[in-house]
Amino acid sequence: MQSSTLALPLSEPCAANSAVSQRLPSPLLLKQQMPLSPALAAQVEAHRQAVRAILDGKDKRLLLIVGPCSLHDPRSAREYAQRLARLAAEVSDKMLLVMRAYVEKPRTTVGWKGLAYDPHLDGSDDMHGGIALSRGLMLAMLECGLPVATELLQPMAAGYFDDLLSWAAIGARTTESQIHREMVSGLGLPVGFKNGTDGGVGIACDAIRSAAHSHRHFGMDVQGYPAIVETLGNADTHLVLRGGNKGPNYDPQSIALARQGLAKAGVAARIMVDCSHANSGKDPLRQPAVFNDVLEQRLQGDTSLVGMMLESHLFDGCQALGAQPLKYGVSITDGCLGWDSTERLLREAAERL
């Protein structure tokens, strides 16, 4: 009865150019329907504590956020997770591997917005099915023993997944957003703020400082009602360097400038490098070169470099969403590094560490 009620069309228009066509379940209802078991909840908390320990310098392992640019095919996502889980166990003394499970994608103009929005890849925008499929995939990854990470793009969607995450990212386009800073201040997990699209770190420094403070803001409670939300502040945040309009920012000079910017803002020097995006010139096969450069800086004693991000899928490259049939295990958004190269890169890094 609840499902049919959720699907009832509403007659009241929201605004002149929009109308509510379907109600979604509240975050609480979806969590009740697809619960996190006590054992997995304990696992998530243990992984969050491990990430915090790395950020605080108490755990000397390298934090790595690894996985597809975006999830679009449940079968290939599960296969990737199973492979990553086996590798994570083998290198766990040197690295903490976190599965990149991105189900929302920012769009500069228009395009496919991610699995949570359009799970059928056909423009039907079945968000009801999308949030359930996304939560189910994340639960499957947890069952493999992996920590899970995602980018939190739409604050209203965050409540459907926040209990499953061990780390989250705020993207370059939204790091400046007050709404996202307020959201992060209420999350009980570590979060990385990316530098602005100009490559500068000032916006991210402001975001880190803002998120560390308590806030009262407009929001939504777990039952889906508008609410005044009061947050306590989140001290477990850090900078993510992803390059910018002027090019990469992972070289030693850029890292030094980032540290200076963090110090000037009174923010802890905790830096993660995204090996993709502008840092790789949007060439996924250049990611290993970026990775090894940053790894060498860390081996030379730069303790501010706590982690890296890799966009990786089962096979190299990317494909257009309209391609028929879609190639299995190939990204439909940004190009990715294939699994064989990813595995070789991480094994070699573990030996060097």
Rank of each mutant, 00 (worst) to 15 (best):
L241I: 11
E79T: 10
A85P: 07
P27E: 11
G247E: 05
L165T: 00
A39L: 12
L36R: 07
K282D: 08
N279M: 10
R86H: 09
T342A: 04
D73Y: 00
M34P: 00
A41D: 13
Y80C: 07
V98R: 01
D251H: 14
G186P: 10
G200P: 07
Y117H: 13
G57T: 07
C69S: 12
V110W: 04
E176N: 07
C69N: 14
A42F: 03
G200H: 15
D198G: 13
G307Q: 11
R83I: 03
A212Y: 11
A132I: 00
L40F: 04
R78P: 00
V267L: 07
S331F: 05
A81C: 11
A81P: 02
L87H: 03
L285H: 12
V191Y: 07
G199A: 11
N17R: 15
F161T: 00
R23D: 03
A168I: 00
P68Y: 04
G188K: 10
T303M: 10
T333V: 10
V240T: 12
R347W: 02
P284H: 15
V110K: 02
S331R: 06
V267P: 10
F315V: 09
L241N: 08
L8H: 08
V267I: 15
M99A: 14
V44H: 01
V273Y: 06
L115K: 04
D283V: 15
L299V: 11
S185I: 03
A7L: 12
A16P: 08
C318H: 14
P288M: 08
L152T: 00
S70P: 09
L139H: 01
L239V: 15
P147V: 01
Q2T: 14
P119R: 03
S37C: 06
V98W: 01
A207T: 15
L30N: 08
Y117L: 00
V44W: 01
M99V: 01
G317R: 12
V191L: 08
C205E: 13
G338E: 08
V330M: 06
G243D: 08
T150D: 01
L8G: 01
D59P: 13
P288Q: 03
K194Y: 05
P325H: 09
V51C: 12
C14E: 12
G247A: 07
D283F: 06
P284M: 04
S177W: 04
L337C: 04
L310E: 05
V91I: 10
S304M: 07
I54T: 10
R100K: 13
Q82T: 13
D118K: 02
F218C: 14
A258T: 06
L305P: 11
E104H: 01
D274E: 11
Y225F: 14
C69A: 14
L305N: 13
R75H: 09
Q2S: 09
G261T: 09
H72M: 05
D283G: 05
T333C: 09
P35C: 06
H277V: 10
